[in-house]
Structures are given as C-alpha cells and as structure tokens.
C-alpha cells in the first residue's frame, strides 16, 4: 500500500537559524500519528510546510503521490494552533465559509459536531473562549472528508474539560482510511490515541515508532520516553 504522506529530506532555514534539518518519514493510511516535541522544536513549521502555507528550503513532500500545491489542498485539512476565523463571523458563517469553498465539507457532520461540542451557531466568533474556539476549529477541520488531517496543538492552553471533549471528538469523528497527524507537547494526555509517534528535536526526527512497541519493548510510557529524549 503506497504511503499516504511522503516527506523526504525537508529542511527549513530562517536566515541562519535551521528550524528543520533533513526531515524524512512516511505515513500510511488509517493512522493516528503524534508529532511530539517541545515548544519551538519546529512542529508547527513542519505542518505548515506539509499544508502548503510555507515553502521548504529543501526537500519534497507528496500526498497520495501528488506534490504539495493546489491539488494537495483538497487532500489536506489543517487546523492551526491559532484561530483563523474572521472576527465579523458567527459560528454559522465560519461553517458556511468552509462549506462554500471545500467540496469535501460534510455539513451534517459539522452540525453533529457542533452539537457534540455544545457550540451555538449564532454565537459570534470573537466572543468565544479559547476552549470553545479550539472546539470550533476542530469541528471545521474534522468535518471535511479528506485523506490527511493536520492538527497543530489541538489541546494546548485549553482547560481539562475541553481537552477531554476534544480528544473524544478526534477519536469519534475520524475516518478509517484517513490519517491524522497531531502535534503536541502534552504527551501524557494524548498518548493513548496515537498509533505511532515521531519525536522532533532540534529540527530532526530522532525517533519514530509504534506506541504499543514502546510500551512493550521499552516498558515505558511515551510520556516517560518523551521526558528522556527532551531532557526535561
């Protein structure tokens, strides 16, 4: 089975600062992947490059065999770590926006998720709390039927109640033939939903393994391994 996502030798430099250095990995279909690293380790940058928002300094990426570009935008659903809704919008406008532009948007699923997340369609987007905003961003991202979902810190800076809700939604609404890459530094909370994890340190993938393997072979939780690798 051909890889869903192929990342090959991707590097990114800002002036003298090397943010990503020769990142390579393959992701198969139907996988939930954790992209783990401390803050500033380049996780967001990597996701932005895959999503086509930032050009890589070197290397190439292909999704379903197609290089990053206009075509892959229809194959990828990206949720940034910062809200990207416009302040004039109400929740239903944000939904309508996605529905208008993305042919793969599932309106029914969106309404179901809004219900599940206890979001009111008529609320103004700018008055939503951080937790509610994350839920909205997640609803928008997961209501699209695509092959690859990229979620950047979906539970960062959010209260534990909202966290549970978000994790619940991710597991409940994800599609079996698609893959999700979730970046986070809150490993303990999230490790149970991952199939595989990749550790990104100083711009390099230093470890890429199946989660249950880590538990069985190394007898450790991913959180413990994370602390070892990142020396906290």
């Amino acid at each position: 089975m051909d890889a869903l996502l192929k990342v090959n030798g991707v590097s990114k430099k800002y002036g003298k600062k090397q943010v990503l250095d020769g990142v390579s990995f393959d992701i198969g279909p139907g996988r939930l992947i954790g992209l783990l690293g401390s803050n500033g380790s380049g996780k967001s940058t990597l996701m932005q490059i895959i999503a086509g928002l930032t050009p890589a300094s070197a290397g190439d990426i292909s999704v379903m065999g197609r290089p990053t570009g206009r075509e892959t935008k229809s194959l990828i659903s990206y949720m940034p770590d910062r809200p990207m809704t416009e302040s004039w919008m109400k929740v239903r406008d944000a939904i309508a926006f996605y529905n208008d532009f993305y042919a793969d948007f599932d309106m029914e699923k969106a309404r179901e998720m809004l219900d599940f997340m206890k979001l009111d369609e008529k609320s103004g987007v700018s008055i939503l709390s951080k937790g509610m905003n994350e839920r909205l961003q997640l609803t928008l991202a997961l209501s699209r039927n695509v092959s690859l979902y990229l979620l950047d810190e979906p539970i960062g800076g959010v209260d534990p109640v909202a966290r549970g809700k978000i994790l619940d939604a991710i597991v409940r609404f994800y599609r079996e033939d698609s893959s999700l890459i979730i970046s986070t530094h809150l490993v303990g909370d999230m490790e149970r939903i991952f199939d595989e994890v990749m550790f990104l340190r100083a711009g390099r993938i230093v470890h890429h393994e199946e989660v249950e393997n880590i538990r069985m072979k190394h007898g450790r939780s991913v959180d413990d391994m994370f602390k070892e690798v990142f020396g906290e």
């Binding site: 999503a51 928002l53 206009r70 935008k73 990206y78 990207m84 809704t85 532009f101 993305y102």
Partner: peptide
C-alpha cells in the same frame, strides 16, 4: 497572506 485564504483550493 492569511492562513484561512491560503488554505483554499483556488487558483492563485
């Protein structure tokens, strides 16, 4: 330059 616009599958 905004993320929400640049993600859209439209011609540049």
């Amino acid at each position: 330059k905004s993320v929400s616009r640049r993600l859209l599958p439209v011609n540049t």
